[in-house]
Amino acid sequence: MGILTFGILTARETGWDVIAPNLTITIFGLLTFAAVIFLLFVIGERSSVKAQEWVKYLVFLVPALFLLTIGLIYPAIRTLFLSFMDARGENFIGFDNYIWAFTKPEILTVLRNTIIWTLAVPIFSTTIGLGIAYFTDRMKRGAWVKSLIFMPMAISFVGASVIWRFVYAYEPNLNKPDIGLMSALAKAIGIADPPIWLIEAPMNTFLLIAVMVWIQTGFAMVVLGAAMKNIPDEIVEASMLDGASQWRRFSQITVPMIRSTIVVVVTTVLIGTLKVFDIVRTMTGGNFETNVVANEMFNQAFQQRNYGTGSALAILLFLGVIPIVAYNIRQLRRERTER
């Protein structure tokens, strides 16, 4: 018996033995999904015009709403509930967690930083992404330029954090060679004693923001680039015949034509920025006045294991997104009336 078990142990399943059933379940999953979709369309298209009026909701909208309810709405309500509870979610403590958040002395710094992030990241990444998308739209070998800009998006976060360590690393011993690119460059241009990049506030916050911009520009570029493909050639050609300058063409044709997409990109990047915490977390741990709300939320909930304060901070993040939602509602209404 023992030998038998040991035999199984040493030959722990590897390679094809594991892959085969996994492959089966993957293919099975995909085929089932495709079959269900196919079936729904067959039923949908065959049903009467009257029936379609309600079948369409069932097929197109209900699946998404169902998944969102169990996966996001319920957790959101739970978070709201927990934000009025104590550390382990056992006793109701009213608004104490919110009072804590607003009386904590560091919170002003955290809020200030979060605002700086949510302004700087969308502005820089959208502007640069828009510029690149425009310049490469009809550029020969533009695909290569685009893929270089896109590359940071393809790097896992673990990789990105290593990359930027090599940029911002500081060597306190002046006799030792630098590992950090910034320090080396600073010394090359004559700054003998460069600052400790990640400690000097408020510079450090902007250095961290640069990492986020570096990642998000690729996103802005791809989405805006896709939108630009929808601008009809006729319009562009017409403007060229008019002798419009490159800048005029950009500002008076391209930007207005993709305006709604720009709003979408800014919004998406902004929300992503509100949520971002791993950059701050891995590079400064939130020290040196670089902390942001999302990182503090993670700290509270999982490092200090206080679900109450962690949830309260998450709710504050949620409230932070309301102005953006309001702006988007206005935008959508405006478009509808123009239509």
């Binding site: 500081y170 306190p172 011993n173 030792k176 400790i196 400690i199 020290n287 040196f288």
Partner: peptide
């Protein structure tokens, strides 16, 4: 300890590396 401020940005492991090179 040299640059006091830099202590906060120096990894505890990297700092120990100074033992090996004698710094």
């Amino acid at each position: 300890v040299g640059n006091v401020q830099a202590i906060a940005a120096t990894s505890f492991a990297t700092a120990g590396g100074g033992l090996v090179d004698g710094s």
